[in-house]
Amino acid sequence: MSLVWAIMRRDMLASLRRGSEWSNPLIFFVMVCALFPLGIGPDPKQLAVLAPGILWVVALLASMLATDSLFRSDFDDASLEQVLLSGSPLFPQVLAKTLAHWCMTGLPLSLVSPLLGVLLQLPTSGMWALLLSLAIGTVVLSVIGAIGAALTVGLRKGGLLLSLIVLPLYIPVLIFGSSAVQTAVEGASYTPQLALLGALLLGAIALAPLAIGAALRISVDQ
């Protein structure tokens, strides 16, 4: 447990001091959401219909772009070698790193999402659903994205490749997440969707670190 805490503390401290790591995805989220009314017109009714989908897709993209940096700096400065050679099990280490990364990217994204919901005319009934579905969903996105980030960290041009690898795997999260918001807007109960997202979360946390660990070993061993 102290291992997990030490890793999370170091990563979050570094990310807080650097600043851009947690602020850039947020700025991206806000900017791209602001592009949509410009692209499809300011009609509040139309925006309200599209808002759940737009918010979820943009949050997903922001989370994915942020994931690219998850292992990048550790790879560049060789701390990743220390991680692999520490003799401690890799599973909690990569999980801690990924969760720390989520605290710096996915969590702020979820917290500002109601604000953007207001900008995009999302009915108030959907706000809680948006916040909760993003809070759970972005963890899954971070964990799945970490697999892609670990696979591409050793490559010079990782960014676009990462999206090709990861986006198809994001689809279930997008489906359940945006559906939760839509259902809430329609006034029905969205607990089933949240429960499904929770199931995805548990499955991802149980299995993905194995793939992340294996991928990191491969990326370092080139």
Partner: peptide
């Protein structure tokens, strides 16, 4: 994307 064949094979296997 990989230059090294072995790394490419292992990475694709994981994916």
């Amino acid at each position: 994307a990989f230059e090294n064949q072995e790394a490419a094979a292992k990475a694709c296997a994981v994916l």
